[in-house]
């Protein structure tokens, strides 16, 4: 018997093999695409075709509703982990010149005495995003916005690279080191809060998230409250707003106090 005799209905093995396979496929398809969808009384289908499409995972078009007009601008910055990778020495130098106008609040060495964020050694992508958002109006601040509004793309990139280049220094407001609070290490799973440390250092770091060790306690508290109230809204997909809204005031105090008391992490060589 050759292969030619194999693929023919005269061959019993072919009949049985293909027949049983097809029968199982048809039965499971009918059950999976018709019977089970209708067995869910809480889901309404227009007709059988609708049920089949739903079970097959056809993307459902939402009723044509136009998105509501945004009263406030949203952040349009796109960050990848290659953003601002490998800056040139010239770019850092230009940034250093530009940074003189920032020194009044952020400190001549990038370490603030005025409860403004410490920028020395902050990730370039973080500064880049915030400056863009201040410029576009996605984030507003009475002091900061006027500084940012006239910056060019090049200047923003240079400033970001300059501050990222500076060594991380201990801040001016060290307090006794505190034990790691639960919110930083475990988050609050029952309230859908991931650990702060999973993005902001202590455990891990994610693109676009600033490291927080040694930052001003007052500043961090203010930002968390601003996220919670919706006053600040330049976080991507409401990541920080969702977290801040679910945090209790005690969580906010604990997280801010903990990070403020930490010395900056040893700078990891990142290229």
């Amino acid at each position: 018997m050759s292969t030619r005799d194999l693929f023919t209905f005269r061959n019993g093995h072919f009949r049985i093999g293909v027949g049983i396979t097809a029968a199982i496929l048809i039965v499971t398809a009918i059950v999976g695409f018709i019977v089970l969808p209708f067995a869910q009384p809480w889901v309404q289908f227009a007709d059988v075709w609708d049920a089949i499409c739903s079970a097959a995972g056809v993307p459902q078009r939402a009723a044509s509703v136009t998105a509501p007009e945004q009263a406030k601008r949203l952040s349009e910055v796109v960050l990848t982990s290659n953003t601002l990778a490998r800056p040139s020495q010239e770019a850092i130098g230009r940034g250093a010149t530009l940074a003189q106008r920032c020194a009044i609040c952020h400190g001549p060495t990038g370490v603030s005495r005025a409860d403004s964020p410490n920028l020395a050694g902050q990730y370039a992508a973080v500064i880049y995003k915030q400056l863009h958002d201040f410029r576009s109006g996605a984030r507003t601040n009475a002091v900061m916005s006027p500084f940012a509004v006239n910056l060019t793309d090049q200047e923003i990139a240079d400033l970001s690279n300059y501050y990222a280049y500076l060594p991380r220094l201990p801040a001016y407001h060290p307090t006794p080191q505190l034990p790691k609070p639960n919110i930083v290490i475990y988050g609050a799973p029952m309230r859908g809060i991931a650990p702060c440390g999973a993005c902001h250092g202590s455990l891990d770091n994610k693109t676009g998230s600033p490291w927080l060790e040694g930052q001003s306690e007052a500043y961090m508290k203010a930002q968390l409250h601003a996220f919670a109230s919706g006053e600040r809204r330049n976080d991507i997909s409401q990541q920080m707003r969702n977290i801040a809204r679910a945090m209790t005031p005690q969580d906010i105090d604990a997280a801010a106090a903990y990070y403020a008391s930490q010395p900056p992490d040893v700078v990891k060589a990142v290229d």
Partner: peptide, 28 residues
């Protein structure tokens, strides 16, 4: 024959796959 078309039981929790296909894979 049947080791192959069953892998979607690894994606039961994935939203991008339709429930009908998950059922077929489960049955196989």
């Amino acid at each position: 024959v049947v080791a192959m078309p069953i892998g979607m039981h690894h994606t039961f929790a994935d939203p991008q796959v339709g429930a009908g296909f998950k059922f077929i894979h489960s049955a196989f």
